[in-house]
Amino acid sequence: MELWYTEKQTENHGITTKITKTLHTEQTEFQKLDIIETKQFGRMLVLDGMVMTTDVDEFVYHEMIVHIALNTHPNPKKVLVVGGGDGGAIREILKHPEVEKAVLAEIDGRVIETSKEFFPQIGGKLTDPRVDVQVVDGIKHIHDHIGTYDVIMVDSTEPVGPAVGLFEKGFYQGIYDALKEDGILVAQTESPWFNADLIRRVFADIKSIFPIARLYTVSIPTYPSGLWSFTLGSKKHDPLQVEDSQLKDLDTKYYSPRIHKSVFQLPKFVEDLVK
């Protein structure tokens, strides 16, 4: 008998993949957490029925939420990740030697612990001495740390359940206040195919708060539609104006100095969302 896992991504569309076994399942305080073994993508972390990360394609998301911002900011010493309990963003942040402290603010401690156990290649850097792991509401953390961070990354789940507040204008204003005078925000902002209204709204909110707002896209096969977006808000530094000599050539699989500016060249239907 064959076993298949299907994520219903919209009311009319889903993605399905063949699995061999369920490695772990539990109901945490905040969400349903499952870890399954798939034939195509290796181990897969699923929260409330939605794919969060996999062994095979995780590097795309984690590299691209991190390195655009950290290669744009000239001296990012203190960085915050809101969400991101799997630890992948933290792993990428630590590739930048100028970062002195990387703070993880994840509301669900069970995501952190199971990721360290089942995805050591993703969450294995959470014990690094430069990392401060806090099981805390990211919204509260933001409001308690005014003027603290050089870069803040919002590595959230989809805008349902505990992550709803991470897509609201008040949250982005809180991030602006928690950033230093030349700080940068980057947030995952879903699929242009399935979440056009959300992208349009979030981009408008960030643009109304930050002097510089940019949308960029990447290809992630296990995320809805495969085309994924990130929105960057900056107080001072523009990722399109950064000197090429400032773009560090890191140990990466997707990000490179050559791709840094090219991801901001949007398909016209995506460009129209942010006009």
Results as ranks from 00 to 15, higher is better:
Phe41Asn: 05
Glu63Met: 02
His73Gln: 04
Leu33Thr: 10
Val56Lys: 10
Ile139Ala: 11
Glu26Asp: 08
Pro120Val: 08
Glu63Phe: 02
Thr127Ile: 08
Gln31Cys: 02
Phe41Asp: 01
Gly124Arg: 10
Glu98Cys: 07
Lys32Gln: 09
Val135Ser: 01
Lys140Ile: 04
Lys140Ala: 07
His62Arg: 06
Glu100Met: 14
Leu23Ala: 05
Ala105Ile: 02
Gly84Thr: 13
Val99Glu: 07
Pro120Ser: 03
Leu33Lys: 07
Asp108His: 07
Val60Glu: 03
Gly85Ala: 14
Phe30Trp: 13
Ile112His: 09
Thr53Gly: 03
Asp128Tyr: 10
Ile90Leu: 13
Ile65Asn: 04
Ile36Phe: 04
Met50Glu: 06
Ser115Tyr: 10
Val51Phe: 03
Phe119Thr: 08
Val82Gly: 12
Gly87Thr: 15
Thr38Val: 01
Val56Thr: 08
Asp132Arg: 10
Pro97Ser: 15
Thr72Cys: 06
Gly87Arg: 14
His141Gly: 01
Ala89Met: 12
Pro129Phe: 03
Val51Trp: 02
His96Thr: 10
Gln121Ile: 00
Met50His: 05
Gly87Pro: 14
Thr127Leu: 08
Pro76Tyr: 12
His73Arg: 09
Ile68Thr: 11
Leu80Ala: 15
Gly124Asn: 09
Pro120Leu: 05
Thr17Asp: 07
Ala102Cys: 08
Phe41Trp: 09
Thr53Ser: 15
His67Gly: 07
Leu70Met: 13
Thr20Asn: 12
Val79Pro: 14
Leu126Ser: 10
Asp137Lys: 06
Ile90Thr: 14
Gln121Ala: 10
Gly14Ile: 11
Leu47Tyr: 03
Gln134Trp: 01
Gly123His: 10
Val135Met: 00
Asp132Glu: 15
Gln134Tyr: 00
Asp34Gly: 00
Glu106Pro: 07
Leu45His: 04
Met64Tyr: 03
Lys125Ser: 15
Glu100Gly: 14
Val46Lys: 03
Ser115Trp: 05
Leu126Gly: 13
Ile15Leu: 11
Val99Lys: 12
Val51Cys: 06
Asn71Trp: 09
Met64Gln: 01
Asp57Trp: 04
Thr72Ser: 09
Pro129His: 00
Glu117Gly: 03
Phe30Lys: 05
Thr53Lys: 02
Ile139Gln: 12
Leu47Lys: 02
His67Leu: 11
Glu37Ser: 09
Gly88Pro: 11
Asp132Phe: 03
Ile112Asp: 12
Phe30Met: 03
Asn75Arg: 13
Val135Asn: 02
Thr54Pro: 00
Arg110Asp: 14
Ile65Asp: 04
His73Cys: 06
Ala102Ser: 11
Pro129Trp: 02
Gly83Trp: 13
Glu26Arg: 10
Asp108Lys: 06
Met44Phe: 02
Ile142Phe: 05
Leu80Trp: 12
Asp57Gln: 01
His24Leu: 13
Ile90Asn: 14
Lys78Thr: 15
Lys140Asp: 14
